[in-house]
Write a protein that binds this DNA or RNA. Structure first.
Lengths: 339, 339
DNA sequence: ATCTCATATGAAAACGTTACAATAAAATAG
DNA sequence: CTATTTTATTGTAACGTTTTCATATGAGAT
């Protein structure tokens, strides 16, 4: 292993000078810098981060905390995509990325504690958001830098987070249905405990109100993620005396389930019922009628959170902020004019 | 930050003794161990990995290298799942997991070099396999511990890798179709450059041969991952003078595309054409006819590779090995008896 | 009682880096 | 041409561990 001393010896300067060259300190003459850099290149020098971290406090590493795998959400293509987003800025800034590996909530907490106490990372990105999260409590108590993707459950103004404007997205996509002549519009969302669901639902309701459409409670369904839930939801809607002509579904994967159940029941999409969805996962363009869906820009959610976190690791005193990533509506084939 | 010295002072022993207690050195008396452990607990001591790594050579961290994002495969739910698998053993052994963040091949190589030279990790897991991979060349040259998920392109016997028996799986799933009376069976696979495709195809062909069925070259199609490719493949098959009655598709996501194209063309699955698939991604149970598919046990692929790697980081001289993870066929509704 | 040997502990060096204080050399001012 | 400031460089002390070597204590063996 070639160290700073080897480079120093090679160039005939002191180790401290080499260290300064690495840090690009202005106090070093251009000549020396040049010379040292050549030697580093020639000998194949690479900084040993452990030595560096021991003295300088920064690790130049951040951690990403995944939700516990009890949560089926993991199957969602969301994760590889956020990780890519995070990765892109991580790479650009020459940071490195550590992933949490716990499966249960308890394990995740332990993992986080190990990362924080052992000074593995400078900051953390929480890839989920839940009620009364002990991880958040711990980080707050230690005043450790972190940002959250999605909307925090409490202390909204005190936690830096990156989110979409889910209210507006929900409103706008519902408006799309309304503009196409739909008046009986249902909503199928995930758990009510999740802010994504709540915000999108509020948007949906607002659109209805703005258009002077009544909102029927039977038209709003919350279901456990997918599969059985999605099936039940659809069956419930179809058994109603007056069937909806349009449905807003809060997740593409969910839409897939809705779509298949609808077809099983002989209901044609978009002929009989129009469907709009969220996320623009890859699969949303390969379903039978391709889905009209809200592209929430997952990659950007990741990238922005990484940027915000790095900023925060440099100065944890900057005021917390909320970053809203713009969404785009992707129009495809799941919506039809309703006469 | 509470250090080993603080614990030493608190208990009235020397730092070296504390260090030995941490390492559970048998030379320390049970009494002392007890006492020191209590103090560690009380003061909230946590090992600083950077200090430890500086002297002991192990980082107790491994890296996972994702494929370049040029590769659409990233959208595949495969990744969160392998990462979970890796994570489970990582956690169990108290290791930590670093993720590569490069987007292009060049970036990935740089990333790997940084990880290796900077001694960020003890070993690497390659989550992909490609021809003439500079990353592999680099790792081989440095004799750095690594394992690969999938099948290496060269030096099969020299690289520790974790894979399924894709030949047998391909054969068995094809046999399932044959047993149900199908004789005209087509195959839709990904790029011919990928070993997964090749192996599954060989299995498919072997099944045909064993059953004395002819194999028609027109029935074998290689397509770029999905979407347009999947569509074309299906159209090609349907335009044949004699249509197949069964299709083997090498990936669930691909099957989704095949399924929708088939339906668009008015072909009913499984009534007109039966479909079998691979991977058992979550979506395979929510498609219209749920897919009969090969569960390749992605989680286990990850877990096994992590285990093999950790073993290898401890002793890089152990002979390379190949680990075959068993698959299971999940029978669902996409296959029908052919009379 | 002396000697050997195991057992339990401690002192100190090392790991590769950064950062502060010190110094030497060069440039500028009076 | 000395005094002062500026610029470029160096020596040294940390950072928190592990590890080798040394040492003290007590138990058996002679």
């Amino acid at each position: 292993m070639v160290t700073i001393k080897d480079v120093a010896k090679e160039t005939g300067v002191s180790p401290s000078t080499v260290s300064r060259v690495i840090a690009d300190n202005p106090r070093i003459s251009p000549d020396t810098k040049q010379k040292v850099r050549e030697a580093m290149e020639r000998l194949g020098y690479h900084t040993n981060i452990h030595a560096r971290n021991l003295v300088a406090k920064s690790t130049k590493a951040i951690g990403a905390i995944m939700p516990s795998s009890a949560n089926k959400a993991l199957q969602n293509p969301f994760f590889p995509e956020v990780l890519r987003g995070i990765g892109s800025v991580i790479h650009e800034r020459q940071y490195s990325l550590t992933l949490s590996s716990g499966e249960t909530e308890q394990e995740i907490l332990e993992e986080v504690q190990r990362m924080v106490y052992g000074s593995y990372v400078d900051g953390l990105i929480l890839l989920y958001s839940r009620v009364e999260d002990p991880v958040v409590a711990f980080l707050e108590e230690r005043d450790f830098p972190y940002v959250m993707i999605g909307k925090p459950f409490a202390r909204l103004e005190e936690i830096t987070h990156v989110d979409n404007d889910n209210f507006m997205a929900g409103k706008q996509i519902t408006n799309h249905l309304i503009a196409r002549g739909h008046e009986k519009i249902a909503f199928i969302g995930g758990s009510k405990d999740l802010f994504v669901t709540r915000d999108r639902e509020s948007g949906y309701l607002a659109a209805l109100t703005d258009a002077d459409l009544p909102h029927d409670e039977d038209y709003v369904i919350h279901t456990e993620f997918l599969k059985s839930g999605g099936k039940e939801a659809v069956e419930q809607l179809l058994s109603l005396p007056i069937r909806p002509t349009g449905i807003v579904v809060t997740d593409d994967l969910m839409s897939l389930g809705v779509l298949s159940t609808l077809e099983e029941s002989g209901v044609q999409v978009p002929h009989d019922i129009s469907l709009v969805s969220f996320n623009n996962a890859y699969l949303s363009e390969i379903t039978k009628p391709a889905l009209t869906t809200v592209d929430i820009n997952i990659h950007e959610l990741g990238a922005q959170s990484a940027r915000a976190l790095i900023e925060r690791t440099i100065d944890n005193k900057i005021p917390p902020k909320r970053i809203i990533v713009p969404y785009t509506i992707i129009y495809r084939g799941s919506v039809k004019e309703q006469k």
